[in-house]
Computed example of a mutant assay.
Amino acid sequence: MNISYEAYPSVLRDYFFYIRTIKGRSQRTVDGYAIDLRGFCRFLLKQRGLFSDCEFSEIPIDSVTVDLLKTVTLSDAYEYLHFVSDSCDNLPKTRARKVSALKSFFHYLSEKSHLIDYNPLTELEVPAVKKSLPKYLTLEQCYALLSNIDGEFRERDYCITTLLLNCGMRLSELVSIDCADIHENTLKLLGKGNKERIVYLNDACLSAIEAYLPVRAKLAANGKDKNALFLNRRGTRIGARRVEQIIEAQLAKAGLAQYGFSVHKLRHTAATIMYQYGHVDIRILQEILGHANLGTTQIYTHISDDQMEKAVKSTPLSNLQPPSPASKKTSDENADDEENK
């Protein structure tokens, strides 16, 4: 995202600084909140009769003041959500993110900076999000993905994919890895909220890193970044969007482009494989994935079809057979005899 924060009013810039430095949110999260709050500010200005002749996407928000924000009501928030639902066809998940941005911002205004007397959005409800089983690659698809990696930076791209499929790390965690974070068979990751955790590297990961390091040395020789593990052709730290493009291209080469897989789906794949084939305890999986809440991890531990089939077959009632036709007939005839007596 290319966001010009200079175009934002000071009250918003202060909020972004707060969630980035004090709350430890990632820059991607800050950028996402910035886009959502920009939309709300434009809606607010238009609703109050300002910039009525201006295209919505062109409305400047640098004129938003604390006094204007003090006039916001719960109804304004719901009208905004209705507006984005009709005009932008936002999905419930997207609207839920917008609600989170609004609630966080007004909590900051009322409870942290004390710029407003009370929080008008305390009762703002998050739209219901349909829960469905996330997509993940099968073992065969994982093999196909890894076996079709080629190109100028094959060793680097293979190493990236191997770490994603084996360690279950987030994209932001992958691109922030430094060489110094690797110590023997462990890797230190910096997760959400600047929380560090240690994950173990299996043989596949160690071999992929070993094969990539000579390539990295050549890239680093012409660049300025001496710390980052994964470098681009300019010798600087590889970006998140570039990794997404690499994975997208690899999926296409492996004939998997039509399934809607992504970098995040590789994280889910790693968790699913560890849970199903490694019989990993859910709390251990929680630590590996870096989840603050166990409930979040449960999304990654859906039961496989084989497990469901095994569960149904294992019940003590699974071997019972219906009575034979002869037995049923005899039983009915006995009942008729009793009635005729």
Rank of each mutant, 00 (worst) to 15 (best):
T94S: 15
P9W: 11
Y277Q: 14
T21N: 14
L69D: 08
K103G: 06
Q258D: 15
D178C: 03
Y5S: 07
P60T: 15
P9M: 09
S132V: 13
C205L: 05
R283G: 10
S132W: 05
L133P: 05
F56T: 12
A221C: 06
R156D: 02
S63C: 14
F56H: 15
G295N: 13
Y158A: 01
F230V: 01
E79N: 11
L164N: 04
A220I: 02
H114T: 06
K313S: 12
A208D: 02
P316S: 07
K195Y: 00
I149E: 00
V30I: 01
T297D: 04
L174N: 05
K23G: 00
A77V: 00
H82M: 03
L137V: 06
V175L: 00
L213R: 08
Y15V: 07
S304F: 14
T236L: 02
I282F: 05
L171H: 08
A252P: 02
V312S: 11
Q307N: 11
N166I: 12
I246S: 07
M274A: 08
V263C: 14
D76G: 07
N319P: 03
D281S: 06
Y118M: 04
L231P: 10
S10G: 04
K328L: 13
R170N: 09
G278C: 08
S85M: 14
S100N: 11
C54N: 00
M308E: 02
T236I: 04
L187G: 10
R197Q: 13
E287G: 05
S104N: 08
L171E: 14
G151S: 14
V30W: 01
I303H: 04
S207C: 04
R197W: 03
Y136E: 12
L115G: 01
G239I: 01
H107D: 03
S262H: 13
D31W: 00
C54Q: 07
I288G: 01
N222H: 14
D36P: 09
K131W: 09
H107A: 07
F230G: 11
T138S: 15
T186Y: 03
C41Q: 09
V72S: 04
N334V: 04
D337K: 13
K195R: 09
T73Q: 08
L317I: 02
A101M: 02
A228P: 04
T65E: 01
R154S: 14
I273Y: 06
I3L: 01
G290C: 09
I61R: 00
F43D: 02
G39C: 05
Q250Y: 06
Q321Y: 03
V99C: 13
L256Q: 03
R170A: 10
A335V: 13
R234E: 01
N227D: 05
I19M: 06
Y5I: 05
D336H: 02
G260N: 12
Y5H: 01
I238S: 04
I182R: 12
F230S: 04
L213Q: 09
I19R: 03
Q258T: 09
G24P: 12
Y158S: 05
